[in-house]
């Protein structure tokens, strides 16, 4: 047994969150089919969520007993501004994807994040973002025919039109 452990900033809150979430899931698993039968659809979910509740409870108690390490601070070591900003950008991306469409959303996302992280010139950021977006578009959209949400850009029609252009020329 390793003597007195320390905990990072926010670790206790995370452990508490996991314990509570596990309890909610255990209740949910019970609600699936109760103790109806060994073969009930809720049997394995109940067993696993029970394991989750027990392990998270022990983890919580252990973490609670550990001393705060006094070195880490949540907003510096765990969630510094840079990571918080990128995470928010990701959430923004997810929300904008369907209404606005894949091409504009991705272009803006890449541009802003690359500019923000690299602190290089706008020309560099624009060049890199567009180039990579074109490559990703070609691979996923043209080769693998993944229909990304078109949003405000009628790229499906544009593509069909380009194709007729090429087939017409041949």
């Amino acid at each position: 047994m390793t003597p007195p452990k320390t905990r990072k900033s926010g670790e206790l809150a995370f452990a508490a969150f996991l314990s509570l979430a596990s309890l909610v899931l255990l209740y949910n698993a019970y609600a699936i089919s109760g103790f109806e039968a060994l073969s009930a659809p809720g049997a394995i979910p109940m067993a696993t969520t029970l394991v989750m509740v027990i392990t998270t409870a022990i983890i919580f108690i252990k973490t609670n007993r550990a001393k705060p390490d006094g070195e880490t601070s949540f907003w510096v070591d765990i969630m510094p501004l840079r990571i918080a900003v990128v995470t928010l950008m990701l959430i923004g991306y997810a929300l904008a994807l369907k209404p606005i469409g894949f091409l504009p959303t991705s272009a803006v996302f890449l541009l802003v994040v690359i500019k923000y992280l690299s602190r290089r010139s706008w020309a560099f950021s624009i060049g890199i973002s567009l180039l990579s977006l074109v490559i990703i578009y070609l691979v996923f959209r043209i080769v693998f025919t993944v229909l990304m949400p078109a949003g405000i850009v009628p790229e499906g029609e544009a593509l069909a039109w380009v194709r007729t252009l090429f087939s017409g020329a041949n």
């Binding site: 009628p154 593509l159 069909a160």
Partner: peptide, 29 residues
């Protein structure tokens, strides 16, 4: 690469008129 880019941009500009002019299907189903 740059040629693809140019044709894509040109295509985007022309789309609005094309979409009306053609019959179903004008894009992938």
């Amino acid at each position: 690469m740059s040629r693809n880019l140019i044709s894509a941009i040109v295509a985007l500009g022309l789309t609005a008129t094309v979409a009306v002019a053609q019959d179903y299907p004008t894009k992938e189903i």
